[in-house]
């Protein structure tokens, strides 16, 4: 009930759109707390950059998934398959262009990598479209079947990788100019990690612009909050969903290429393995929230890197502990999405 007369409310300044800051502060606080524990500043820098790089890659893989969930209440357990497929597809370009990759020329390295990423995103995008049509569409609104069937879809995709590329791991060396470290003071920073951070920031910025400056982006954000109203305004949310699904799959493919180069070996199960982190990230961030997903990814990766250094045994369960801690603080995740 509004009890204030309109004259008063209309003239009173509205509170500025309050930015929910506590989750934003968690990251720097965590990083600062880790510093004295680690003790050595250069080590801390190395670990932090490693964490940021890993976080960016996880964000790229997770962002599509969280939007897909927000928009249509669909949780795709097969999302990890796109990661693997993306990475393996990249080898179709990178292995024949081995010469370009090994050449001591940034331009040639970038061309080969760019081609590989383009192909990977194209293939995973197309695969996402097929996945949506064949696997996801028939089970809209049925959570139980959705979980089961997307899980099944992932198994099939993973096995098909084995059929096509054989059962063994595939080595994927980094291009020459991305190898090695940069020394900043005493801190050694791997070049590739900086590149991963840069790519992650670009993707985040692009996504931010699309979601805030384009009509499609506005529709996506509106649809996450209230899909029914978007339909009542005359837009087909199904079509919007397919767009997001395909884009999310392509991003997972991109994440797969980056992740594969980071690990320098590819296994069919790499997508399924990383999915565990991805799920933790989107739970921490708040299902459906891109911003939350971004912070969650960085948080998970930093915690993993710090604990990996400080207490390797705890590192194995650090993500779970982090998730528990966040959920105790905010049971719906860092940035819960307003629903209807």
């Amino acid at each position: 009930m509004t009890t204030t007369p309109p004259a008063a409310t209309a003239d009173a300044e509205l509170p500025r759109l309050r930015l929910d800051t506590p989750p934003l502060l968690v990251l720097p606080i965590l990083a600062l707390l880790a510093l004295p524990l680690i003790g050595s500043f250069p080590t801390w820098v190395t670990l932090t950059v490693a964490g940021l790089a890993m976080g960016m890659m996880i964000f790229i893989m997770a962002s599509g998934l969280t939007l897909v969930f927000g928009l249509m209440d669909v949780l795709n357990f097969g999302h990890g398959a796109f990661v693997s497929v993306g990475a393996f597809t990249a080898t179709l370009v990178l292995l024949p262009m081995q010469g370009w990759m090994q050449a001591d020329s940034v331009l040639m390295n970038l061309t080969a990598l760019g081609l590989a990423i383009a192909l990977a995103m194209l293939v995973t995008g197309a695969l996402g479209w097929a996945f949506e049509r064949i696997i996801v569409m028939p089970v809209y609104g049925q959570h139980l079947k959705q979980i089961l069937i997307t899980m099944g879809g992932m198994i099939v995709a993973e096995q098909m990788i084995h059929v096509v590329w054989g059962p063994d791991q595939i080595p994927l060396p980094l291009p020459t100019s991305f190898r090695g470290v940069i020394l900043v003071g005493d801190a050694a920073i791997e070049k590739y990690r900086l590149i991963a951070v840069a790519v992650g920031l670009v993707v985040f910025a692009a996504m931010f612009l699309v979601l805030n400056r384009t009509k499609v982006g506005l529709l996506i954000r509106a649809g996450v909050e209230n899909g029914e109203m978007v339909e009542a305004l005359g837009y087909r949310i199904r079509r919007l969903f397919v767009v997001v699904f395909v884009a999310g799959s392509a991003l997972a493919g991109l994440g797969g290429v980056l992740w594969g180069l980071y690990k320098e070996t590819l296994t069919a199960a790499m997508g399924a393995d990383i999915m565990v982190l991805v799920f933790i990230v989107i739970i921490i961030g708040g299902l459906g929230s891109v911003g939350g997903c971004f912070i969650g990814a960085l948080l998970v990766a930093l915690v993993a890197n710090y604990t990996g250094f400080l207490a390797p045994k705890i590192a194995l369960v650090s993500n779970i502990l982090l998730m528990v801690a966040i959920l105790l603080w905010r049971p719906q995740g860092l940035y819960p999405v307003a629903k209807r």
Binding site: L218, R221, E225, A232, R340
Partner: peptide, 11 residues
């Protein structure tokens, strides 16, 4: 115009 107004609060 639905009963809950259906505005997009994030926009």
């Amino acid at each position: 115009v639905p009963e809950n107004m259906g505005i997009f609060s994030d926009l």
